[in-house]
């Protein structure tokens, strides 16, 4: 039995073996799960915002899509993963309130997808947008990702 490792907001974690990475209640935030099937190394990032230019006095690289994904890839390579073998599954980026004009969720999705494209990492599954919260569970032994939500129940992507 592996460990269950929680990833907070503006955070990321790496795992292998039978470990499970969990991030709870993604709203407008986006969760990005990267997996190298050969090395069986998995990583999960939970970003709050799209771009570090939004906030000048903050050094937390895990908070922003444009800095967090690069850092996740770097840390996974240290654990033996290779970028060309990595695939991505992403979830979140919801618009929780209808009147909210900031469109944080949508911007987060675009920023994460852009970053993955730049790095040449293929997105093999996604459950993004709409208007509901999601919990993401990522399994290191086979790379499957379970999405839990109140509206749609549980589904594997």
């Amino acid at each position: 039995m592996g460990n269950i490792i929680t990833v907070g907001i503006s955070d990321m974690k790496i795992a292998s073996g039978d470990d499970i990475l969990i991030t709870y209640a993604l709203g407008s935030c986006v969760g990005t799960c990267l997996y190298d099937k050969t090395a069986k190394v998995i990583g999960l990032s939970h970003v709050l915002l799209s771009n570090s230019d939004l906030c000048s006095n903050d050094s937390n690289v895990y908070k922003y899509a444009n800095t967090a994904i690069k850092e996740l890839v770097r840390a996974m390579r240290v654990k033996g993963a290779a970028v060309h073998r990595m695939t991505a599954k992403i979830a979140g980026g919801a618009q929780m309130f209808t009147n909210n004009t900031l469109k944080v969720g949508e911007r987060n999705i675009i920023a994460v997808v852009d970053e993955l494209n730049i790095l040449g990492i293929r997105i093999v599954a996604s459950d993004v947008g709409e208007n509901y919260g999601r919990t993401m569970e990522c399994y290191a032994n086979d790379g499957r990702v379970m999405i839990k939500s109140f509206t749609k129940g549980n589904q594997i992507i």
Binding site: A25, C29, C55, M96, F97, N99, N100, Y132, F150
Partner: peptide, 27 residues
């Protein structure tokens, strides 16, 4: 005060909205 907006969901997902608004100006 603006007109109210409603969301029924997980507490964490709802609170991510103020977190993202304030996350733009500081930590």
């Amino acid at each position: 005060i603006s007109t109210p907006d409603i969301c029924a969901d997980m507490a964490g997902a709802i609170m991510s909205v103020p977190a993202s608004i304030f996350g733009m100006t500081g930590d």
